[in-house]
Amino acid sequence: MSPPWLLYGANGYTGELIAREAVARGMRPVLAGRSKQKIARLAAELDCPSAVFDLDDHTALVSTLTEVAAVLHCAGPFSQTAASMMQGCLATHVHYLDITGEIDVFELAASVHDKAERSGVVLCPGVGFDVVPTDCVAARLKQAMPDATHLALGFDSRAGLSKGTAKTAIESAGKGSCIRVDGRLVTERLGARTRRIDFGAGEKLGVSIPWGDVSTAYYTTGIGNIEVYTASSQKSVDSMRRANLFRPLLRQRWIRELVKFSAQRRVTPPDKTQRDNNPTYVWGEARNAAGEVKTARLRTANGYSLTVHSALGILGAVLSRPCNPGFTTPSLLAGADFVSTLPGSSTIRIDP
């Protein structure tokens, strides 16, 4: 039997998917979150222990963490929740995993690497679709081209959005886009970069986005110049560019909350049929100083389905074997080919 672990945010869309799969695998996580009614109902249905507390309640957080060996944190936006959970894990010597794709959270985890080492804690944010497939592609490209100086990553996903993902996107919109240049994070306007990309299902327009790999791929590969793209339409790119006019407004919390409330009323998360019938195509390109290029492609399951299996797979690895403490990335922890072991995933193909 695996050591006890906590699933915080179990009542959210992705958290509930993970909870159900965990129980189907014979696990009994402690299901936790802020909503007493939702957590109690899910825990009773799945016959799991539960805990209800707000992350601002440090006493309740620490008290709960002392009873578990690891946390799988699924309550976003992580820019608002990750710091409290990480601090609690460091204080109680509990391993920390989450499913974020937010650059600031990865940078926060990297900044407390030394504290995590001293605490004996693994900090591995981004164990879901953000950023497992792209992180594995980055690692394989680095192996194929050790002298790479530039890295571009991207994906073509036809999945719908959960309410949590929509909230996170709104939180980050006010900050603009982001790339890495010579090792430094550089903010850009939304929609600043576009290019034509064959992600794996035919050439499409790609637009740069502030995806987590702008942070994590640097720690995985050491490559100093990184961009991330997603498949888009020209209409969507034009909308992103117009949104730059409203970025100053989105920096005000009350306006973000109003926009998030409106978005949540309109968002309908994908159901099982939609998840099962919408694979994702992942692409990467490494280039060295001589202008040589290597391209990688990968096909995976829908992002939400992949998140369930990748998060539980990496959690299982952390609970079952000794791991070096400190901040790490999914591919450094589980291996560059980890994504190819997940249901619905192909191997990573490198060309030429």
Rank of each mutant, 00 (worst) to 15 (best):
K175E: 09
T92S: 06
A43W: 00
F199L: 09
P270C: 06
P29T: 05
S346H: 15
T307S: 11
D213V: 00
I197F: 03
D47P: 03
A19C: 03
C48N: 02
K36M: 00
R266I: 06
G316H: 07
P125W: 14
R28H: 07
T165L: 07
G222A: 14
E45D: 08
F53D: 01
P325N: 11
L61S: 04
D271H: 06
L319T: 14
K260H: 01
G200K: 08
R321L: 15
G316L: 04
G291E: 12
V112K: 15
V71C: 08
K294P: 00
R287W: 01
R34K: 02
H150Q: 12
T168F: 07
I18R: 01
F327G: 12
Q252E: 00
Y229T: 03
D47L: 05
M1N: 08
S232K: 00
D147F: 02
T194M: 04
M85N: 13
R251D: 06
P133R: 13
S177W: 08
D47T: 09
S84C: 11
A51Q: 13
G200S: 09
N324I: 13
R251L: 07
V293L: 14
A231P: 05
S305H: 06
A144R: 01
C178T: 13
S345H: 04
K175P: 00
V94S: 10
H150D: 14
L332H: 15
V339L: 09
L17D: 04
L161T: 10
A148C: 10
K163C: 10
V308I: 15
G101R: 08
V293S: 08
E292C: 10
F53Y: 12
V105F: 05
V121I: 05
E257P: 08
R275T: 03
K167L: 08
L298W: 02
